[in-house]
């Protein structure tokens, strides 16, 4: 089965790209594909290229990929409760990363690890503690420290706050944003939260059933979404001006089973604007206005898609 199909994305240095979609849309799979960390078996990348700083990651040898991982591209994972090795101290887990990608050894690497912990707000006396001695939010801070320890040029965060307590989600998100600019790394944020994307990202890509359906900068996309699916996502977000007791509109139906994608545009069965052509064949990405791409035969008119 193909979980992710025909994906074209470009991310410029120092910029933050939001990657938005429902659960099961293939966001995490895409992130893991960039790092070439898809479990085989059962997973497999069947084709395509992943260009990073002018090189195709798909064509690299295993050793070259290892040099990219952690050093040039690193990742913050979704669930901090399970993403840290329970048998190693947090310091050791950061030191491991540093030891792999820099000349620093022993004391020096240890000092650097303490700096990283301080940077994410963990006191040095806790460096010899094990993951189970930290709360979820603190563990995610450790995860951030690991990911940024080698100052990667691309940082991927896979729903970094979903598994956390609501009260500290904002803190952790802020920390990531702050450190992203400190380290000056490109940032790929995977989330289903359009609000967070608006605050943090420069560009946004909307993903549906393993495909990008719309891609643009924040300003254009939020002021006039072109794809009916994007529009649906916005309508499903509760807003302050929503009348109390009024119903949120939801997108009817469920995301398709990736084993059994519908013919034509994957969104067509749920799309309020679908016409016969949509059920026949997919449109493919096209540039509807400068810098604003959409994968739809009949994008919403500039007026009709507007978000007030």
């Amino acid at each position: 089965m193909h979980a992710v199909n025909h994906l074209n994305l470009t991310l410029h240095r120092g910029k933050a790209l939001g990657f938005v979609g429902e659960t099961g849309a293939g966001k995490t799979t895409t992130a893991l594909a960039i790092l070439q960390l898809i479990q085989t078996p059962p997973g497999k990348i069947t084709g395509g290229s992943i260009m990073f700083e002018g090189h195709d990651i798909m064509k690299m040898t295993e050793a070259e990929k290892r040099q990219i991982r952690g050093d040039r591209i690193s990742m913050i994972f979704q669930d901090p409760m399970t993403s840290l090795n329970p048998l190693k101290t947090v310091e050791d887990q950061i030191v491991e990363m540093i030891g792999l990608h820099s000349a620093m050894k022993g004391e020096e690497a240890r000092k650097r690890a303490l700096e990283m912990l301080a940077l994410v707000g963990i006191r040095p006396e806790r460096s010899k503690d094990y993951p189970h001695q930290f709360s979820g939010g603190m563990r995610q801070r450790v995860g951030i420290a690991i990911a940024l320890a080698c100052e990667p040029s691309l940082l991927i965060a896979d729903e970094p706050t979903t598994a956390l307590d609501v009260t500290i989600q904002a803190q952790v998100m802020e920390l990531i944003k702050k450190l992203q600019s400190v380290v000056n790394t490109s940032f790929l944020l995977i989330t289903h939260d359009l609000g967070i994307v608006a605050e943090i990202c420069d560009d946004v890509a909307i993903m549906y059933a393993g495909r990008i359906v719309e891609y643009s900068n924040i300003r254009q996309l939020y002021s006039h979404p072109l794809h009916p699916y994007t529009r649906g996502l916005f309508d499903a977000v509760p807003r302050l001006d929503t009348r109390l007791g009024g119903k949120l509109s939801v997108i009817p139906g469920l995301p398709p089973d990736p084993i059994d994608l519908p013919k034509g545009c994957a969104f067509s069965p749920r799309c309020p604007k679908a016409r016969p052509l949509c059920h026949e064949r997919e449109c493919g990405m096209r540039e509807y206005e400068p810098g604003h791409f959409v994968n739809c035969h009949f994008p919403l008119e500039l007026g009709e898609g507007g978000v007030q």
């Binding site: 089965m1 193909h2 078996p41 059962p42 497999k44 069947t46």
Partner: peptide, 11 residues
């Protein structure tokens, strides 16, 4: 490996 082939394999 084609789609059907790999599915059969895992089944």
């Amino acid at each position: 490996m084609s789609k059907n082939n790999s599915m059969l394999h895992y089944t």
